[in-house]
């Protein structure tokens, strides 16, 4: 039972990583930009959510508001920061992205203070269903469910709708896709909206899980997200999902067996370094 619980906790953590890494890999696939500032949208979703919840909104509505704000801010940031840099060498956008992360983090610090905010009430954290002896709180359930729904929804969209097919065509050959009437710009805006929405939701739920929203809360997740997309093959969506779950489970078991040698957050990078020494292209092929 203990191992089953570890496995489930790992999968829930992996689901959270997947929600973050999916956005990174989608944006990389379209723009060849490592969107480091993705972490700031995770934090943004958390702050909007906690402020909304503490002002009396139900948690569900607070979550929705956080998602909405993140989904609006993502395309805005793309339009103002990345779009002007698209024809510059890729490292320019990378540096801009790092700068943006620092700026947004300090923005949160200025606006909301350095110590972080907690939820006045956190009912999802303290209650949950009993699944035959395994206890999960509602936040964990929500994390797992959101990831599954987001992935399934994106998958259906990608193969089942004209817009999804147009998106994948744009990843393959933007110039050709454009000549058939697909707007690469609209695809990019949509990608930033979706990626940022997922990041915002993940940030809100992690905030509930830790009962703390603080300016730098996205950093660790963001570094791990980068490790995951490299492991999964840059731009490779299924690879990214597998790598997310793998890391979540590895961390979960690692905290038991590697506790004395490795910090939990170091496990991702230990795996990354080990895998890259063995397979420099990552576990799966990128684009």
């Amino acid at each position: 039972m203990f191992y089953v619980e570890l496995l489930i906790a790992g999968l829930v953590q992996g689901a959270m990583y997947a929600m973050m890494a999916l956005g990174l890999t989608l944006i990389y696939g379209l723009l060849r930009i490592l969107h480091i500032a993705h972490a700031a949208f995770f934090t943004l979703g958390g702050y909007v959510g906690v402020l909304a919840a503490n002002s009396g909104l139900p948690l569900g509505a607070a979550a929705a508001l956080g998602v909405l704000v993140a989904a609006t801010a993502g395309p805005l940031v793309y339009g103002t920061v990345y779009r002007p840099l698209l024809d510059k060498p890729p490292y320019v956008a990378l540096i801009a992205s790092i700068g943006l992360l620092i700026a947004m983090e300090d923005g949160f610090r200025l606006l909301f203070g350095p110590y972080g905010l907690s939820f006045a009430e956190n009912p999802w954290f303290v209650t949950g269903p009993d699944l035959g002896g395994i206890f999960l709180n509602w936040v964990q359930i929500a994390l797992g469910l959101s990831a599954v729904l987001a992935i399934a929804g994106l998958g259906l969209f990608a193969v089942g709708s004209r817009a999804g097919v147009a998106w994948r065509a744009t990843v393959d050959d933007p110039e050709m896709a454009m000549s058939f009437g697909v707007s690469p710009e609209r695809v990019r805006l949509l990608a930033f909206a979706l990626a940022s929405a997922l990041a915002g939701l993940a940030g809100f739920l992690v905030g509930l899980l830790n009962n703390l929203i603080e300016p730098g809360m996205g950093n660790i997740t963001s570094y791990k997200g980068l490790a995951i997309v490299v492991l999964g093959g840059l731009g490779n969506v299924p690879g990214t999902l597998w790598a997310s779950l793998l890391l979540g489970v590895a961390e979960s078991f690692g905290t038991i067996y590697l506790d004395k040698i490795l910090d939990r957050d170091a496990i991702a990078f230990f795996i990354l370094v080990a895998v890259l020494m063995w397979r420099p292209q990552g576990l799966a092929r990128g684009r």
Binding site: V159, R162, V165, A166, R168, A169, V171, D172, D173, M176, A177, S179, F180, G181, V182
Partner: peptide, 30 residues
């Protein structure tokens, strides 16, 4: 394209990760 010009470019440039049918869906996007 909308006016009636079709292009079969050098190197074919089909969308490799899309199925045959999906390539045609993009071709008929307009």
């Amino acid at each position: 394209t909308r006016l009636g010009l079709g292009l079969v470019p050098e190197g074919r440039r089909i969308f490799p990760d899309l199925t045959v049918r999906e390539n045609l869906v993009v071709g008929g996007y307009l």
